[in-house]
Design a protein around this nucleic acid. Structure first.
Lengths: 146, 146
DNA sequence: TATTGTTATACTCTATAACTATA
DNA sequence: TATAGTTATAGAGTATAACAATA
């Protein structure tokens, strides 16, 4: 049990610094924040994505998600379309501009992450890391699921 | 190179959810936020800790660090003492109340993190994960060093 | 002139909760 | 009554920059 705390500190520091490194490049080269890139990717990857789906996937509050979507809409990358089955919610869809912003940013995103992962670790160590993170993520989401 | 993006998303989700899980328990059981626990640990672990040392260790801005220290002082966990060698900066020190808050919180912190790491992965997988994170952290800090 | 730290502005996110509309 | 989402408040973070004090 001792030592897990150090592991967590390393996890937090890596996440913070890697997030910042990717964010700096996305903002400079594509005018897109990493948080927005993240949301656009979730919207693109779900069939009928609602605000609450973003909340559960990204683990932010409903209010923050609602305002973040406002900013995506304002930037022209996303729109709300009526949900015919439930008048309380809308489905979120990328606009053509959103699709193109996302695909332009993806190259930078993958490249910067690869600099600190696949170019730094052996294929075996990378695979182990990916497996461990998947395992922990699944356990956390199983318990924290609403 | 493809697939590193997924790894990063898992890293971010694990960090967010694990941070939240620990933060909830620390606030409920010890009246301490995880961000404050983190700063107090850094201060406790450095001989003559200045505000700029927090900035470099935790990767926050100078303004945020200065205000965070104000709140630690206000809570009675920390004090600024004059730096005799440099009148521009102070050394940060834990008060007895800060030392006891930290040691009380440490048990909860280690226990909650262990739930999602050492109790979830084999000793070998845990060791691999710790090594990978240490490697990536060292590389990021070497490049981002001020 | 450069460094350390404080302070200020504007924006984003947090927790929390009131509120509307719909199921 | 419960759920989906919007809106509002206060507190804490971000970026950015002006600023004071000291090196």
């Amino acid at each position: 049990m001792a030592g897990s705390g150090e592991l967590f500190v390393d996890l937090v520091r890596v996440e913070t610094r890697l997030w910042n490194a990717v964010d700096v490049r996305l903002r400079a080269e594509h005018g897109l924040r990493l948080g927005q890139y993240d949301l656009l990717t979730v919207i693109a990857g779900r069939h009928e994505c609602r605000v609450l789906d973003l909340v559960h996937e990204v683990a932010i509050t409903v209010g923050a998600a609602s305002k973040a979507v406002d900013r995506l809409v304002e930037a022209g990358w996303c729109r709300r379309v009526a949900n015919p089955a439930d008048g309380r919610s809308s489905f979120l869809e990328l606009t053509p501009s959103g699709v193109s912003a996302l695909s332009g940013a993806r190259r930078t995103y993958e490249e910067e992450i690869a600099r600190w992962t696949s170019r730094l670790l052996s294929p075996g160590a990378l695979e182990e890391l990916a497996n461990a993170l998947r395992t922990i993520r699944a356990a956390l989401e199983a318990e924290q699921r609403p």
